[in-house]
Design a protein around this nucleic acid. Structure first.
Lengths: 236, 236
DNA sequence: CCTATTCGTTTCACTGTACGGAACAAGAAA
DNA sequence: TTTCTTGTTCCGTACAGTGAAACGAATAGG
């Protein structure tokens, strides 16, 4: 997992990150390389290997969230005719684990595997429903201003999170990148925890208020359908 | 890996498959469950867990084959306007690790993570370039007749493999499922081994001989481009 | 050019971990 | 009932994997 988190790191660096001895780290890396769990990306830097790829792809067919989400994402994508993403929390970041893209020429490009900070833009939808202790750890005191619309203070972000919890969805207008609007809705599991979020991302000029409302309506409904198929049901 | 290969298996079954003691198997499963590498699918049956999903998705962004293939697959998909797949050998099967689908209504559906036997249809393209010893192990004496066009004998398959090696691509007309035509081309790595194959799958009625030739031409060229971007260069 | 660090790698004696075998409870089948 | 299965736990011991230290080979600094 340390290798995944920090690709192209060497033995010493990985040993430090994980708190292992250098010799232990070295030996672990050595045997994991033999088993193809990791591979050398250059002389003495490591990355995830082929075995991990195969296991991960297999995992995605055995995991409910992905299996059930795929058709829902595709339908949503077709209805809004914009790029759709499924994200989960990994570490202190949002990780895109599935996507669907429309075939129109001008669209926002999405990438499975890409990570984003949780405290800016539509990933806030994931953050909002995490334990307060986790939220406090994730939101920086001085969030970097990516665009003119990025919330400038920690307090502003925390207030936004409260609003998201209340209204049940999140809208970001050019917060993380200009000319981009995104809308996200939370996906609940049996225990009422939020396990993922569904995002619709679109070029800003195409989204007037009326379109935005339409997108909000059907993406929250898509997220709700996914929640229900995961066993969740609506109560306090 | 045993859990991946055989989902919904219990302790005893997994212990047998792996040659481990029952107590060892139990303890390994127990700690892997704590680390979220695997999860219980029911009382005492196991499947791959969330950690595996995250690692696998991360691996796919760190793996050259996938990263470089994605744009090539998408371009190929657009040019042939049919479903395109990227497959690798896993165990004695072909595993689909990436795909691209056109947006037209009638198309062959593909699924990342799906496995197919290596000895029938276009996966033969992968098999053809493996070591002879491996081929012998994979091709059954009496291959099951999936359709009227499935090769009926072991010898027929072996001859087909020779032809594939000679011509550098593989065509399957309804071998694994009626009304489906597929065409595959091998992807080479630096050491001239075949690491993957690019497949174009289409409904049979749409593919006349002239279209097929066109598909063969541009899919072999796509595979060649991918090979080259992996560091391969054409020599004996 | 010579230290001073840094890196990855290897050695070695030791110890604490993870092992196998057997026993256990709880079901299911005979 | 008995006799198979399951999954789970116990326990004494062997030995695998450990940490610390040493090693050679780089790179950086003065």
């Amino acid at each position: 997992m340390a290798v995944a988190r920090k690709p192209n790191a060497g033995v010493t660096e990985l040993a430090k990150k994980t708190g292992l001895t250098k010799s232990r780290a070295y030996r672990l890396l050595h045997t994991m390389e033999q088993r193809r769990i990791i591979k050398r990306t250059s002389e003495s830097t490591y990355g995830l290997g082929e075995a991990m790829l195969v296991l991960g792809i297999t995992a995605s067919t055995q995991t409910d969230v992905i299996r059930l989400a795929t058709p829902i994402l595709e339908e949503l994508c077709q209805r809004v005719n914009e790029t759709v993403q499924l994200r989960i929390v990994d570490g202190v970041e949002a990780l895109c684990i599935a996507k669907a893209e429309p075939s129109r020429d001008l669209r926002v490009h999405a990438n499975v595997g890409r990570r984003r900070p949780l405290y800016a833009g539509s990933p806030k939808c994931l953050l909002a429903f995490q334990p307060q202790e986790f939220i406090d750890r994730c939101v920086p005191l001085k969030p970097p201003a990516l665009t003119a619309h990025t919330p400038k203070t920690r307090v502003a972000i925390l207030e936004e999170l409260t609003r998201i919890r209340r209204q049940g969805y999140c809208v970001s207008r050019g917060e993380v990148s200009d000319h981009q609007v995104s809308c996200a809705a939370p996906v609940f599991a049996l225990d009422n925890s939020v396990v993922a979020s569904i995002h619709v991302v679109a070029p800003a000029f195409r989204i007037r208020d009326s379109e935005l409302e339409h997108i909000i309506r059907i993406s929250t409904s898509a997220a709700e359908r996914l929640s229900k198929s995961l066993g969740w049901s609506e109560d306090a």
